[in-house]
Design a protein around this nucleic acid. Sequence first.
DNA 1: TCAAAAGTGTTCGTCGTACACCCATGT
DNA 2: ACATGGGTGTACGACGAACACTTTTGA
Lengths: 225, 225
Amino acid sequence: MTGLALPPQATQVGLAVDIAAFAMHGGELNVLLVQRGQLPHARDWALPGGFVQPGEELHEAALRELRTETTVQLEPRHLEQFYTFGEVGRDPRGRIVSVAHLAVLPHGTVSVSGGGHTLEAEWLSAHRPPRLAFDHQAILTRALLRLQLRLEYANLALEFLPDTFTLPELQGVYEAILDRQLDKRNFRKRLLAQSILTPSGERRSGVGRPAQLYRRAKNVRVAAL
Amino acid sequence: MTGLALPPQATQVGLAVDIAAFAMHGGELNVLLVQRGQLPHARDWALPGGFVQPGEELHEAALRELRTETTVQLEPRHLEQFYTFGEVGRDPRGRIVSVAHLAVLPHGTVSVSGGGHTLEAEWLSAHRPPRLAFDHQAILTRALLRLQLRLEYANLALEFLPDTFTLPELQGVYEAILDRQLDKRNFRKRLLAQSILTPSGERRSGVGRPAQLYRRAKNVRVAAL
DNA sequence: TCAAAAGTGTTCGTCGTACACCCATGT
DNA sequence: ACATGGGTGTACGACGAACACTTTTGA
């Protein structure tokens, strides 16, 4: 670091992050929402988020807000910035620019509750959410688009599931994210052809015929960008 | 707007925009670079950019910086934000977060020269640029990736050309952006099948056989996101 | 034996890719 | 006539979409 100073024309704005955190619950794609405890928009639902602190990286701020505004314990399996919302009038408190992030939380991330400045935190339907504060509906819509894009040519669906899972479960994740039904035979053919799955040898019992369990093949990573 | 104030924990950071502006010159994809006139990185090449002003939208700031740092007259045919660079140490002057934009300038945007705080502005090779200041090489690389993505399923290539153009010229734009050769027959088949082009009836003479001129079909718009 | 969920193959259309020769003009 | 760049068609493989019945288990 040199001793150079910020030039005077450097506009100072509030820098925030908002997080659209997704997880699967009961076959539905859910998004993590908090109920605001402060003005503006007190008692309205909103995406978790908050101001970036000095010296804090953007993704660190996103992780911190997830942990302090909700009681999510597990680390996100995936976290990426996807768009920056900076429209002048988007926040009544002044010029606040928000770098929006998309997070995928692993299976088992169930119990959440409010913390910090929030009254409550809940997993709610991502495709049919309640009315949201600020421009958070626009942020959520864009997050869903990005998630659907990623599904196709990264393998983000695996991040929603535990280590071992069945093909019908994986298909359920795809269907919940795309919000439409898929053909079972085509889905299996396509997924198995990618050879990103290895059968674990075990089977999962329940009602009906037991399903083969799979796990992520070695050397398979989530694609970037 | 209400009288609500920014909460005290709202970190103030410098908010900037940087622009990767592309155009075709002599069959090569060029990017608009400026030579810095100030520290840090004085005399180094950099992407045009600067601080967002109070009450100014992000895309307005990008347009303003293009106009003041260079003498580009024409309006960009396409302008989109593509990533926000906010790493703590990316600028020695302090915490500066930059919303990076991708711009496409139309054909005929040739003469540029420095203005404002820049010594010089030039169109230089986008795929083989000189050494760049700050993290601008990373920004440029990401801009190129985004441009290549857009090429496929928006029709951004048309924005690089004048109203009427020949198919070999359009193919040249594709090849310059993708930085590889394409097959002439396959290219024509694919483009004509999209029915986004209509023959203008005229032909362009020169050396060799005259080429059919095309123009963008009515009702064809550049796709969003 | 029945209900419930898992598993399996084929056909067809579309799309990308590889590949070589003739055509129209200016000099 | 020749050099220069424009224009054309076919064959093949890969991939996505549509579509119905059999298998395995627990109750």
